[in-house]
Design a protein around this nucleic acid. Structure first.
Length: 583
DNA sequence: GGACCTTTGAAGGGG
DNA sequence: CCCCTTCAAAGGTCC
């Protein structure tokens, strides 16, 4: 396991990284499914599962490796290849990217093209370049074509895509920008150029441990190309690009990342190429150019006006300054689940016919719970780093600052009072979102599911403080589906925890108390794995001991709990459709 | 066009 | 310290 405590001193460390596993949720969908459907879908499902698994495994890596090579035709590729080679060499020498920190952790490579902090959305030059390399057939519109991203014109790609990339340029697809100022400071060599980086806290140069580099951190293209692509699922599956290109073009993850100081003049770090040109250095007036900073006005700015064929043309007469005068909107750092969602969404979407995010999110939520602790720990760690970086970049920033920026928040309450009956919640029943097709939701792919998720000491790394979930929590059925909903008529009321605040974080501590007991869980049996006969939920009942070295340690309560649940899985009967939404 | 829905987690304020 | 609220992503849906 990667060194979790990577960054020297993370005071920010999330203590809640430990989460209670509540997997039961999965059943819900299944429950709703009928047997016949299951059979029909079985094949599909299994195929999907295989597909996904394969993607993540060797086949994927092979593809990843091959792609760049096969795609020598691309002019840009040729050019960039040199850079990559160089970059790779440097990295290897420096040990910068010796291996994926998180094997099988797709995130690492390219989580997604969207920039978490950049709402406007467009693909950065480098990203485009990368895409070209990776997916030659994938249309990656140039800045000019951003609007009309669908028109695949190979030609324009090479023409429009700036090949201006430094050997050390950041991995274009890295979703997160590094928050470190060094990447943006003109005078400061990018950290990725050198193996050493300054410890944020101590100021002492140190060699970043791979684990310290969040997936969002810049990865050199060369490294990327040379590494098996863990994001097999990311690859266009079934003819569908993993990430559909939005009308406005790809969202570029942290444009700033993709550019170096020199590039910054061409493209705003915070704005998409087709957007208004950034101030000279692309530095935010705060001096901190970060994609997380989103000017609301800019966000909505129509890209049409400034779309120019070349990035160079980008300079727009209208400086964003005005908008920036307004307090820039610094987005919250993504939490572990959000990171997971971003990563997996495409996969889920590909597997399912579902398109609604709400439904997808439900599935993701289930999958999240089905992840092993270690897997989750990865995300927690990433999230922690993100928070850390974020805090470093925006020391004064408070989540509170964003309050009210979103107009949404309405659900507010049904003023009526927290319904005792939870049913009052305006939220729709999750089940509703999950159509029968949902088979996909089965976390099948998730290895091990909760079974192997017993808390591992390694998990501790994620959150030392994180208390292992209490037994009760573990055993608890997933609250997911059970969330009180209007339509569902569960009789359990959700105690105080009204909103999304799930039990995990808060409950982790002593608070488990009420929440656990009163949790509305439906009595869904945990693993109605039955619903997915072929599925692998349990396919991999890995002995704890085999899970992770750290796990060898004496079983903690958590382990036991896990075991307990494990048994439950096998023993549980497919629950009946108790949960079936009454629709 | 914007809010809603859905998920989990983080953070902050209030009691 | 606990509870509650808000926001983070995302995209179809609804108004």
């Amino acid at each position: 396991m990667p060194q979790l405590n990577g960054g020297g001193g993370d005071d920010l460390g999330a203590n809640d990284e430990m989460i209670s596993f509540k997997d039961e949720g999965e059943q819900e969908e299944k429950i709703s499914e009928n047997v016949s459907a299951e059979r029909d879908l079985d094949d599909v499902k299994s195929s999907l599962v295989n597909e996904s698994e394969n993607n993540s495994s060797s086949s994927d890596s092979e593809q990843a490796e091959r792609r760049p090579q096969t795609r020598a035709d691309s002019e840009s590729y040729e050019k960039t290849r040199d850079y990559f080679t160089e970059a790779l060499r440097r990295q290897q020498d420096g040990g910068f990217f010796k291996s994926p920190h998180y094997p099988g952790y797709p995130f690492l490579m390219i989580p997604d093209l969207t920039n978490p902090y950049l709402s406007n959305g467009s693909l950065s030059p480098s990203a485009r370049t990368y895409l070209q390399m990776k997916w030659p057939l994938l249309d990656v519109p140039g800045s000019a074509a951003l609007k009309d991203s669908r028109s695949p014109t190979p030609g324009h790609l090479s023409n429009k895509v700036p090949v201006v990339q430094h050997a050390h340029h950041v991995h274009p697809l890295t979703p997160l920008i590094t928050y470190s100022n060094e990447h943006f400071s003109p005078g400061t060599p990018p950290s990725h150029l050198s193996p050493e980086i300054l410890d944020p806290k101590t100021g002492i140069p140190r060699t970043p441990h791979p684990s310290e580099l969040s997936p969002y951190y810049p990865l050199s293209p060369g490294a990327v190309g040379s590494i098996a692509h863990p994001l097999g699922w990311l690859m266009p599956q079934q003819g569908q690009p993993m990430y559909s290109i939005p009308p406005g073009g790809f969202r570029h993850p942290y444009p700033a990342l993709a550019m170096n100081a020199s590039m910054s003049s061409l493209v705003s770090s915070r704005f998409s190429p087709h957007m208004v040109t950034p101030p000279p250095h692309s530095l935010h007036q705060t001096g901190i150019p970060h994609p997380a900073i989103v000017s609301p006005a800019i966000k909505q700015e129509p890209s049409s006006d400034n779309i120019s064929p070349s990035m160079h043309a980008r300079k727009s007469p209208v400086p964003p300054k005005k908008e920036e005068d307004k307090k820039p909107h610094i987005k919250k750092p993504l939490n572990a689940f959000m990171l997971y969602m971003k990563e997996m969404r495409a996969k889920v979407v590909a597997e399912c016919t579902l398109k609604e995010s709400a439904a997808i999110n439900q599935i993701l939520g289930r999958r999240w719970h089905s992840l092993s602790r270690e897997e989750q720990a990865k995300y927690y760690e990433l999230a922690r780093k993100e928070r850390q970086l974020h805090s470093q970049l925006y020391p004064g920033w408070s989540a509170r600052d964003n309050y009210g920026k979103r107009k949404k928040r309405k659900r507010e309450n049904k003023p009526d009072s927290k319904p005792e009956d939870f049913s009052m919640r305006s939220k729709k029943q999750c089940v509703q979102y999950l159509p029968s097709e949902k088979m996909c939701d089965s976390p099948a792919s998730s290895h091990g599911s909760m079974l192997d998720s017993p808390a591992t000491p390694s998990a501790a790394l994620a959150s030392p403080a994180a208390p292992a979930a209490t037994h009760s929590e573990q055993a608890q059925p997933l609250s997911l589906t059970t969330k009180p909903e209007g339509r569902m008529h569960h009789h359990f009321s959700l105690p105080g925890k009204a909103s999304g605040s799930t039990s995990s974080s808060s409950s982790s501590s002593s608070s488990s108390s009420s929440s656990s007991s009163s949790q509305p869980t439906i009595s869904l049996p945990i693993g109605t794995s039955g619903s997915q006969p072929t599925t692998p939920i349990l396919t991999r009942p890995i002995p704890f001991t085999s899970l992770h070295p750290s796990m060898l340690s004496p079983p903690s309560p958590f382990h036991q709990a896990a075991l307990h649940s494990h048994h439950a899985l096998f023993q549980s009967q497919p629950l009946s459709l108790v949960t079936k939404p009454t629709e």
